[in-house]
Design a protein around this nucleic acid. Structure first.
Lengths: 317, 317
DNA sequence: TTCAAGACTGCAAACAGTTGCACTAAACCT
DNA sequence: AGGTTTAGTGCAACTGTTTGCAGTCTTGAA
């Protein structure tokens, strides 16, 4: 049914090992033989079977990518870039979604283990212990989580948060709220410590909140009486919800209060007012993560973030 | 290094074939033996090697999913649902992105062929001939493309378009524009023929347009002088761009013109005004496609669409 | 008591490749 | 001319699992 290396060998009058080598170590075979084998292979429609190859070599040329929620607008650009990078080196990419369940991370890595050469884990929620246990089964690189011993790519959200608060301060805002994220989040903590270090502004923390529009909408009420004129939100979704909530309370953005988000997702750009936000280098992170994985280098990198100023921030009244 | 079926066999005093059967055909092995093998396997941390298994059985328990653009908000919900369905039956999912290049479809399917039990192809752009060629290599199901001989899942966008135009007619609009999509698109044609059949409205077609915000923004100018009061856009992105373009031209939505989109992507819900749109059952399509693939049934299904009315449509002035 | 039928289990040959080793022949060096 | 290197190829073992076949041991029936 399916054409194998043996069929090609027979049809071109050489041994299977020669056929094998024309594909996996071309320089070891005579140019004339090689081209004969190649044309025969082409005619027969032969494709190397990667599973069989994996069996002997131990390398599958597959990678796994695990994210919390494929449908969260934060991830698709990362997935896309990771895919492109993998493809470029002839790797295939398994994509998996934990549905925000920490336990699923471990299970998925286990399930992948024999089938991939490595996995990239985005913002994992599992405990350090669990991650260390996984590291023994399969090489991986983590995105957005500090983990010693593992290859890591971080996005410098702290720096971005500082830029955002400085931007607000520069516009003249002196009382600024931080609408924070979920309780245990590494990112949320980073944002907070960075934001607190900006001189000249009183920072009030409102939270924790769910990292969704809903969370942002709900936080609006708690903001009204706080007297703040500027807000840094945990992410764009929260910012968008917040803006809607403020609107329903009769407060306009940026007229009455300025709002800056974090992530720079597409819906933020499409929002009215267009969201001022901290752009996260998600594509770069995805690309870099798979490059690190393929090259098997254990490094910890920190990617720069930048502030993109649009229409949701202005000088206070 | 890695623990194999032989290690388990040795450690539990049985032959490898017995170990194999405890995993792949448990009913064939004595209960006592089975549980002994299982505990030993557990202790040793044994996991069956799927690549090796694939070699003999010919089934990989992997599926491929090919979309035009992972980062296009239309696809992530589909990918997520496909993943969930696959996961539920213990399949893994390769995800690939053609970057809108038709040629990449064929290449990706080829590359997947030995590694998956089937692939789902979303809105393929390849020619029928090319697709038929591919069908010989690997089973697949197509989403949003009519293709005889292959399993197909369609979203009934025609019906949705009709509902949308009827909605506009019901509000009192008599001149309606269809801001169409790219030239060769199957979807665009479906929309058009359905929209034309609604009685009581003059339909003017404006297009073709790029299926992006940009495309919509550009189309706004051509709408101003046409005297239409209602618009059906090729998709939500186009609708959003169109609304912005109309705004820049001094026309408000839905005050001066009503706009309805198609797809029901997240940014449409977040847009101001919230977009009235035709909801596409993308999640259902993704789920169904992998179910069809796994069960190897060749059927053609048409999924229902529905109109969700929000804030971008109103009665004409 | 004998025989047939089951229920388990072992044996060994696949599956589609890779790779260390051995072999041949040609090319290169004195 | 003889010895040594080198390029190219074949041989066969190996990767981790599955599975048809055959053998053993029980069990139930006649």
């Amino acid at each position: 049914m399916t054409v194998t290396i043996r069929d090609v060998a027979r049809a071109s009058g050489v041994h299977v090992s020669t056929v094998s080598r024309t594909f996996s170590a071309p320089h070891m075979v005579n140019a004339a033989t090689r081209s004969r084998v190649l044309t025969v292979a082409e005619e027969l429609g032969y494709r190397p079977n990667r599973a069989a190859r994996a069996l002997t070599t131990g390398r599958t040329h597959n990678l796994g990518l695990i994210v919390a929620d494929i449908a969260n607008p934060f991830f698709p650009p990362l997935i896309k870039a990771a895919h492109a990078a993998a493809r470029q080196r002839d790797y295939h990419l398994f994509v998996a979604d934990t549905d925000e369940e920490p336990a699923a991370e471990e299970e998925l890595v286990q399930a992948f283990s024999k089938q991939v050469d490595g996995v990239v884990l985005c913002s994992p929620r599992s405990s350090n212990k669990a991650l260390e246990r996984l590291a023994e089964r399969v090489p991986f690189v983590v995105i957005n989580r500090r983990l010693r011993g593992a290859a890591t790519v971080l996005m410098d959200v702290g720096h971005g948060a500082r830029l955002a608060v400085e931007h607000l301060a520069g516009l003249g805002h002196t009382r600024v709220a931080l609408v924070s994220g979920p309780a245990g989040s590494w990112t949320s903590a980073e944002i907070r410590t960075a934001a607190e270090q900006v001189p000249g502004v009183d920072l009030v923390v409102v939270g924790p909140n769910a990292p969704t529009e809903r969370g942002g909408y709900a936080a609006a009420a708690r903001l009204r009486d706080s007297g703040v004129t500027g807000v840094l939100a945990y992410n764009d979704l929260v910012a968008i919800g917040l803006i809607e909530g403020l609107g329903d309370l009769g407060l306009s953005v940026p007229g009455d209060v300025s709002v800056v988000g974090i992530d720079d997702i597409v819906p933020g750009r499409l929002n009215r007012p267009k969201l001022t936000t901290v752009a996260m280098p998600t594509a770069a992170a995805g690309r870099l993560a798979v490059d690190l994985l393929i090259q098997e280098v254990t490094a910890t990198t920190s990617l720069e973030t930048r502030l993109v100023i649009r229409d949701s921030t202005a000088a206070p009244r």
